[in-house]
């Protein structure tokens, strides 16, 4: 219960094409993440799935049934918004129960389901408070609780963590992962943060310019990016791109190598470089190297390393970890 199919969904605002033909299958119980830079149409796609916006063309099927003519409240979906969007004049209990009440559930049923959701999210002490009397993290949990209470076929999350501070973001991320395991519900989650995408997803959909760039599991995207965009977007710090000509490689236009797939040595190696800048992160050390042959190269070393700006070092890319891209930006395999 809770599969979603998108068939060549197009969306234009006036003459601006925002979505240019999205085809996607989401299976029951999957947690799928739409990731992409700001303005690439993620929220628009989510709003189209929710029925808050009409697609210009294309079909949306939930559990195999075409829902284009079904209003949002009848689609069996629940949505968690970036800005929480809690009703300011209702207390937590009523915020969570409103959807069910509107759908005609009995008072007793609303009460039991709100209670269960509140227990799941440790919100019991706050049930009688208004949103204004809650912290940001609590508000976000209420927003999630409001979605859970409706027992939807499909959960939609629109950047739910981007208004939280870093520590809370990690906690809430874990909470969402736990909810997904406990509820076994289908979830679609939108974010511009590739770390969030990598840590949560069963399946990641990378969007850019209104087009799906690649669909795959986090490790597929990391290990086998389909094109330059995905290669540069997934992974942090992002992949080094080097002109193939400079390396004397004929069959590709661009060579990609991740910062963590380069080894350093003071004695010898493939590229002679100068250290431009060093960042110590504790667990990692990030180096920015300037080299004659490969230009500026980012290197990520695990653990603590004491290199200094100006120092000469040799960098060697791990050959089997190199990604080759053709003139059209696609990976060559």
């Amino acid at each position: 219960m809770g599969s979603l199919t998108l068939k060549s969904v197009h969306k234009a605002f006036g003459s601006v094409d925002v979505l240019k033909g999205i085809d996607l299958e989401v299976e029951d119980g999957e947690l799928v993440i739409f990731v992409g830079p700001s303005g690439c149409g993620k929220s628009t796609l989510l709003r189209i799935i929710a029925g808050l916006e009409d697609a210009t063309s294309g079909a949306i099927l939930i559990d195999g049934a075409e829902v284009s003519a079904v209003p949002p409240a009848k689609r069996g979906i629940a949505m968690v918004f970036q800005s929480y969007a809690l009703y300011p004049h209702l207390n937590v209990r009523d915020n969570m129960g409103l959807g069910l009440k509107q759908a005609g559930a009995s008072k007793a049923e609303v009460a039991t389901r709100v209670k269960a959701a509140a227990a799941m999210l440790s919100l019991e002490p706050y049930l009688d408070r208004r949103p204004a009397e809650l912290s940001g993290g609590q508000r976000q949990r209420v927003a999630i609780g409001r979605a859970i209470v409706r027992e939807p076929k499909l959960f939609l999350f629109d950047e739910p963590l981007s208004n939280l501070d870093a520590a809370l973001r990690v906690n809430t991320r874990l909470e969402i992962a736990r909810l997904h395991r406990d509820l076994k519900a289908t979830m679609i989650y939108v974010t511009h943060d590739q770390v969030e995408a990598m840590t949560l997803a069963d399946k990641i959909v990378v969007l850019d310019g209104g087009v799906i760039q690649q669909i795959g599991s986090p490790m597929e995207l990391y290990n086998r990016p389909a094109n330059l965009f995905v290669a540069g977007f997934i992974g942090s710090p992002s992949m080094n791109f080097i002109d193939a000509e400079r390396l004397g490689i004929q069959e590709a236009r661009t060579i990609g190598i991740r910062p963590e797939h380069i080894t350093l040595s003071r004695q010898s190696g493939e590229w002679a470089t100068n250290v431009a800048h060093v960042e110590h992160l504790g667990a990692d050390t990030i180096l920015y190297l300037e080299s004659e042959k490969a230009g500026i190269v980012t290197v990520r070393l695990f653990g603590e390393h004491h290199y200094h700006p100006g120092e000469e070092v040799f960098a060697t890319p791990a050959g089997e970890q190199m990604h080759r891209f053709g003139a059209d930006g696609r990976a060559i395999r």
């Binding site: 929710a50 409240a73 409001r146």
Partner: peptide, 12 residues
């Protein structure tokens, strides 16, 4: 906020 109105629409 549009989100608030949309939340209302989803809640029926």
């Amino acid at each position: 906020s549009d989100d608030l109105k949309n939340a209302g629409r989803i809640d029926g």
